[in-house]
Write a protein that binds this DNA or RNA. Sequence first.
DNA 1: ATATTTGCAAAATATTTGCAAGACA
DNA 2: TGTCTTGCAAATATTTTGCAAATAT
Lengths: 150, 150
Amino acid sequence: MSEHHHPVSAPCAGDLFGGSRLSAARRAIAEAVRSLGGAFTAEELHAAVSATHAGIGVATVYRAVAAMSAAGALAPVGSRDGSTLYALCAGGDHHHHLVCTGCGTVVGIECPVDGSLLSSAKSAGYTVTAHEVTLYGLCAACAACAAERD
Amino acid sequence: MSEHHHPVSAPCAGDLFGGSRLSAARRAIAEAVRSLGGAFTAEELHAAVSATHAGIGVATVYRAVAAMSAAGALAPVGSRDGSTLYALCAGGDHHHHLVCTGCGTVVGIECPVDGSLLSSAKSAGYTVTAHEVTLYGLCAACAACAAERD
DNA sequence: ATATTTGCAAAATATTTGCAAGACA
DNA sequence: TGTCTTGCAAATATTTTGCAAATAT
């Protein structure tokens, strides 16, 4: 059927932008997102991009973040100093994120919202349409570092 | 012991500010928080206060929101148009919030984060220190209104 | 060829802060 | 009385937007 193998879901590493055009700037931004590894603010992403590809504007980064979010490749995972934190969102099935408050590393976690919670909401007269779950903590390395500091 | 009955936890309706001073402005703000009933932004709260008590500055409202949040009487429940949404937080035990996206009504829900999720985080090397859970949906009235619109 | 994306700079907002004056305890 | 709170206005900061030029497909 298709000559090229365009994945329908679970975008591969090269495609964080869904169906939008892949410009040089966006390529650089996608690269920076991966190099950051964990959670980041728009400004941090801009700084990371600028380190290797100078001349990319802040607005472009903000627009890229919006595009990647719309494509489901990025998810907001809290905020720091008034700026929204984003993180790469593993494609595939429904999940949430656990963010290390020390280094920003993010891992996916299963969704804890189960039928019993939904039905208790239902009995309160509510129909749940969306939910937001994020955990915060320390990764092994940051926990060890914190313990050492005592 | 105590001549006055200062509850240690689960602040009563008159005390949204914890131990801070109860000024006229703060009394008016607390009143407005209750009159709003559901989720609100700082600006909406300021407008509500101003309707009955003119002359209260925006900064005072922001500071009051911070004070009430610190006292545990208010919790952030998402954002709208770039502004943080807050809601009255029922005192007492640990819980989360379900917000009607139609009218802003908020109800408390039990916490779905259970031991199995925490131990799966643990096995990934993470120690969970905090979490954030919010559900969004429609209350009975707003759901009926939406159905009617078809 | 053409619709999308970029970069710049300016705009729109949300929230915070300094400080003198006023209010609570 | 002494400290906390207020109000105003200015400062900060984040994110958005208009528009002409550049670019991807």
